[in-house]
Computed example of a mutant assay.
Amino acid sequence: MTDGDPVLAAGCVLWRRSPSGQGIELALVHRPKWTDWSHPKGKLKRGEDARQAAVREVLEETGMACNLGSELPTTRYTVEGNLKEVRYWAAEATAGEFLPNKEVDRLLWLPPAAARIRLTRDRDKELVTALLDALHLPRNAP
């Protein structure tokens, strides 16, 4: 761990109703810098609160506008020797279109079970369960 204040960040477990009408799908982003699959998130900008940052990061990384729902568990971990604290919200995608960019080169919409498998880090997998609980859906949702 490091001394000093943590790097503050915010993000969302972004979801939509499945086009098939059966359940929901989650948006996962692939970040080439880290070669990982994760939920959209990023650092707070000066003067920005965590809710604003979460919505901004979703838009920047996925191209999607969203409505924030319940706050989900905050994650804490170290990156390059610095403590990072990320606040998350459940967020329903309302509109938009993904365009690859410098930070995110791919976006996948997956059912919760498949999202858990694809996510790189366990802390992100745990957020899938937290989202399902927040939406009052079964934890074993396909």
Rank of each mutant, 00 (worst) to 15 (best):
M1L: 12
L8A: 14
A9C: 12
A10F: 08
G11R: 01
G11P: 05
C12E: 04
V13P: 02
W15K: 06
W15A: 08
R16T: 04
R17H: 14
S18T: 06
S18W: 00
P19K: 09
G21I: 09
G21R: 10
Q22K: 13
G23A: 07
I24R: 07
I24T: 03
E25D: 11
A27H: 02
A27S: 09
L28K: 01
H30K: 02
R31I: 13
T35P: 00
D36I: 08
W37P: 00
S38M: 06
S38P: 00
S38I: 01
H39D: 01
P40W: 01
K41N: 15
K41F: 12
G42N: 06
K45M: 03
R46I: 08
G47V: 07
E48K: 03
D49I: 00
A53S: 15
T62A: 06
T62L: 02
G63N: 02
A65N: 13
A65T: 12
N67F: 01
L68A: 11
G69Y: 10
G69L: 12
L72A: 06
L72T: 04
L72Q: 05
P73N: 12
T74M: 13
T74F: 04
T75G: 07
T78L: 14
V79F: 15
E80W: 10
G81K: 13
A93H: 02
T94C: 10
T94S: 14
G96C: 10
F98R: 04
N101M: 05
N101A: 13
V104L: 05
D105S: 15
R106Y: 09
L108F: 10
W109F: 07
P112D: 10
P112A: 10
A113H: 02
A113W: 03
A115T: 02
A115K: 03
A115V: 03
R118Y: 00
R121A: 14
D122A: 15
D122C: 00
D122H: 13
R123L: 11
D124M: 07
D124N: 14
D124C: 04
K125H: 04
E126R: 15
L127F: 10
V128R: 00
T129E: 14
L131V: 06
D133L: 13
A134S: 15
H136W: 08
L137V: 06
P138N: 11
R139V: 11
N140K: 07
